[in-house]
Amino acid sequence: MAVAQAGASGAGAGRRIGATLIELALTFLGLLAVTFAIGRLMPIDPVVAAGGADLSAEQYARVKAEMGLDEPLPVQFVQFVARLLQGDFGRSFLTGNPVADDILRVFPATVELATLGTLIGALIGIPAGVIAALRQGGAVDTIVRVLTLVGYSMPVFWKGLMLLLVFYVLLGWAEGPGRYGVAFEGAVPPVTGLLLIDAALAGDRAAWSDAFGHLVLPAASLGYGAGAYLARMTRSFVLEQLRQEYVTTARVKGASEASVVLRHVLPNCGVQLVTTLALTYGLLLEGAVLTETVFAWPGLGQYMTRAMFNADMNAVLGGTFVIGAVFVLLNLLSDFAYRWLDPRAR
């Protein structure tokens, strides 16, 4: 009987994995179709973008044929998917490199920045949100709400420049724009592309300190915005749970306030918090473009923006696909986290 149950459970898990994989494949196909459609519907001319404004009529026709843009759209889509399946996003005409190589270079920079930004945001925002909820209407709550409002409303450009002015120029506590100092160019052999990890792997303490010094201000800038969002969301999740009857029951039974929060309230906010965190992380991976611009951070946001302004369509499509894939994967991870946090979802 136990064996039969185990077999049934195994078959169920297999079905679930199969269903998830099919769902993923369909999602990616949809993502590719949307990405391709964006590339073709945008009111720009990739031939002029690649060949230059001074192309003659004959040169234009030749470049168009070379880019495969004279084929019917369905054929172009099939070619696009076939190339992508081989990891070929085409070549960026702005950088002259294969887009896949460019993305492998710029995406780790964004991952490093967004990860530290999310960490800072979570470490500050979640506790601040919990405390504000517990002290609803009090001085702490007011301070948290004001600070989060400022975090929301402060323009990213201004915030970045102020951080640079104070901590880089006036106090000299942090490094300036860029991902590393000029003296460290080529000092760390790239392994993961994440400079902090690569410097640690190389055992180069000076390079690690330099990289961290450059990372801390843009990450703090992003982290403040993310922390403001997380604090407000956490506050509302906790307030909602504090009104539930199980909290009253726990208090009546004599549970301490710390126990009520840590053992009852926070676990019940877990699912919502994971979703919010995943979304925040995804948005920082995608939308750190202004921070990357102010801090001269050579990441995906800057790469995509430059590509879009110059109609470098291979780079735009490659970047869009990567961002889409990140959201799909974060969504998948959130689903796994739900099942782990909430037995009802299993």
Partner: peptide, 9 residues
């Protein structure tokens, strides 16, 4: 040459 897009930076 360091690519620094923002004039303020």
């Amino acid at each position: 040459f360091r690519h620094t897009p923002e004039s303020g930076a």
